[in-house]
């Protein structure tokens, strides 16, 4: 079909003919300036993204299971894991806020990483995963609500705040969280809608 060679700017609805190659370059709409990320080859190669996503998933597990900050004051210590923060808010009659913190710092990043792994691992080995239709949509829905980088800044602000009151010991979770922030930044460059073209190629070959 002729329309397969066309692309629509998702922000201003302008029609473009797909360029023959965008290798190592950046395509953007000439009218509104939005970057057209779904073009094939506009971003880094798929297996590269697959590796970063896997690394981010492992780092995510480490960041969740170790304490992020420990606090020492008057001989008493307390430590905060991410899940511990959710539990403290939940028991302090702030259930809506607890649910929001849980979703934005634990649930949604986890869903995004798992969906991307589910899509990318089979595609990199040349297979087509079942339920392909649902996954890119799930990633698109969940992505704006995952806020690990904001959480990272929140942890830093808390540390600076606490330093004057008590002795603050950064936990292993903090370093994992920092690494996770960087990796999720790379993962966010990946636009899953570009995968449809890859899937069509796998099917036709």
């Amino acid at each position: 079909m002729e329309y397969h060679r066309l692309i629509v700017c998702h922000e201003c609805d302008l029609l473009f003919r797909k360029p023959s190659s965008v290798e190592k370059r950046r395509a953007s709409c000439s009218r509104c300036g939005a970057s057209l990320t779904a073009l094939r080859g506009a971003r880094l190669p798929l297996d590269w993204f697959c590796a970063v996503t896997l690394a981010a998933f492992i780092t995510f597990c480490i960041a969740q299971s170790f304490p992020v900050i420990e606090l020492c004051a008057n001989g008493m210590t307390s430590e905060a894991t991410l899940f511990g923060a959710v539990r403290a808010l939940w028991s302090g009659n702030m259930r809506v806020v607890a649910a929001m913190v849980f979703c934005s710092s634990i649930l949604f990043p986890l869903i995004e990483l798992l969906c991307l792994l589910y899509l990318l691992v089979p595609i990199c080995t040349g297979k087509r995963p079942p339920w392909f239709n649902v996954m890119p949509r799930v990633v698109q829905l969940v992505r704006p609500w995952g806020m690990v980088e904001v959480l990272m800044l929140g942890v830093l602000v808390t540390i600076v705040k606490m330093v004057s009151m008590a002795e603050v010991i950064p936990g292993p979770g903090l370093f994992a969280l920092g690494a996770l922030t960087v990796m999720l930044g790379v993962v966010a460059l990946f636009d899953p809608s570009g995968l449809w073209a890859v899937r069509d190629e796998i099917r036709s070959s």
């Binding site: 992020v68 900050i69 606090l71 004051a73 008057n74 008493m76 307390s78 430590e79 905060a80 511990g84 923060a85 959710v86 539990r87 403290a88 808010l89 302090g92 806020v97 607890a98 929001m100 913190v101 934005s104 710092s105 806020m147 904001v150 959480l151 800044l153 929140g154 942890v155 602000v157 808390t158 705040k161 606490m162």
Partner: peptide
């Protein structure tokens, strides 16, 4: 969302009886 996270972490950390 920054402030919500800061409050959550502070509430978790500061509970010294």
């Amino acid at each position: 969302m920054l402030d919500v996270f800061v409050v959550g972490l502070t509430v978790t950390l500061v509970h010294f009886g």
